Simulated assay, not measured.
Amino acid sequence: MEQATPQSSAESAPQPARRGEPVAVPLDNRQFLVGLGRAFAGALIFTLPMLMTMEMWWLGFYMQPLRIALLLVLTLPILVALSRFGGFRRTADLAGDVADALVAIVVAAVAAAATLSIFGVVGPQMSLSEAIGKLVLQIPSGALGAMLARSQLGGQSQDRSEEPVSYAGELFLMGVGALFLSFNVAPTEEMVLIAYKMTVWQELTLLAATLLLMHALVYAVNFRGGTPDAHMAGALLKFTIPGYAIVLLVSLTVLWLFGRLDGLSTEEGLSAGIVLAFPGGVGAALARLIL
């Protein structure tokens, strides 16, 4: 028998990918099914409060179709970007991230349809447009839960969470963290009611308390974007203040999409945004733990 020479063995061995080249991720059916199962579990865990909230059922009936479509349009790029940080399976390139995002949307739709059907919220007795509206409104939150299934439910594929994240990536994760906690309460009428009952000084106090809480949590979590800051003042300027601006923008956008800003003045709408920014700010500050 011929023995392989060291040179031929070296030539036949797999060569490591060059720096900057995408690493191929072998497709394993079992791993994919496990990831898919985690995706269904994540979708159900994250969207269950909204599936059992009456405001979400009514929003699907009277919410403007343009806003529903816009909500879905905004969801896709967020899921694609999030797949780089916490998809339910490892992906090698943009095509894999897009595929993961589409799978997450399908998983969310199936989970919502099955759950709402069991609850008797959707069924053959209602019009097709009403049923679709109720289902579509559940897709963004369910898809987000499916995409976060890996970091939320664990698994061997969590190794990507240890990779370095850019400063822009950290700010993006803060925005997703804000969505993670604020999306469940944004459709409710309590956000506007609380804002209506608060005085200007109470709103300013809530804003300051949100900033203080975010700052303490951001510094405690020790975000890894760029060079770590040695002082809390650095974290304040680098993460807390920009993070709160992102949280407030996310809060106002979500409130507008759900129609909670309709008929309100600019001051009243901003007050509702400050109220919603409180849970959103906590989610943004803890994005590194949540995601």
Rank of each mutant, 00 (worst) to 15 (best):
L252N: 08
L237Y: 03
S151I: 10
A186L: 02
L255Q: 07
A178P: 02
V221P: 04
V185L: 03
S9P: 00
L171C: 03
G133F: 00
S166A: 14
H231P: 00
V282G: 05
P49W: 05
M198W: 04
F172Y: 04
I105Q: 06
L211G: 07
V73Q: 06
G259C: 12
A230F: 05
V192Y: 00
A149D: 12
Q152F: 13
A81K: 14
A111W: 09
G120K: 09
P140Q: 00
M56N: 12
F180T: 03
A104Y: 00
G169N: 08
V122P: 01
S117I: 04
G259Q: 08
Y219F: 15
V80N: 03
A109E: 09
E189I: 05
L70C: 08
G177I: 10
V121T: 03
F180Y: 09
I139E: 01
A216G: 12
F46M: 14
L179R: 07
V254S: 07
M63A: 15
V254D: 03
F223P: 04
S265M: 07
A233E: 08
Q3E: 15
P49G: 05
I68D: 04
I118F: 07
R160I: 15
I274H: 02
L255E: 09
A92L: 05
L153Y: 11
G273T: 11
R38F: 14
L255M: 09
M232D: 06
P26W: 02
S141F: 06
Q3C: 06
Q31E: 14
A101Y: 02
M50Y: 06
V98F: 03
P22C: 08
P16L: 04
A69M: 10
G280W: 12
G155F: 01
V107K: 11
M174L: 05
A131P: 02
G123F: 04
V80F: 01
N29P: 06
A277V: 10
E163M: 14
G123Q: 03
S127E: 11
A39W: 05
L179Q: 09
G243P: 05
G20I: 10
F180Q: 04
S151T: 13
R288F: 11
D97S: 08
A114H: 07
Q7A: 04
S161K: 08
Q138K: 02
G225V: 07
S9D: 00
P49L: 05
R160D: 15
P228T: 11
T5Y: 06
E190V: 13
A287E: 06
A92Y: 07
D97W: 00
V121Q: 01
K197D: 09
K134E: 00
M56A: 11
L211M: 15
L44K: 07
E268M: 14
I241E: 07
S251Q: 10
D93W: 05
L171R: 01
F88P: 10
Q64S: 14
V25F: 06
G225E: 13
S271F: 08
S117Q: 12
A108C: 10
P187K: 00
V218K: 10
P22V: 07
S141D: 02
V136Q: 00
L148T: 12
S8Y: 03
W256K: 09
L70M: 14
G283Q: 11
F119Q: 14
L252D: 06
V282E: 06
V176C: 00
A178H: 02
G169F: 09
V73M: 12
L212P: 08
L248M: 13
L270A: 13
G243D: 04
V103H: 01
A17E: 05
L261G: 04
A178I: 01
F119L: 15
S157P: 07
G177A: 11
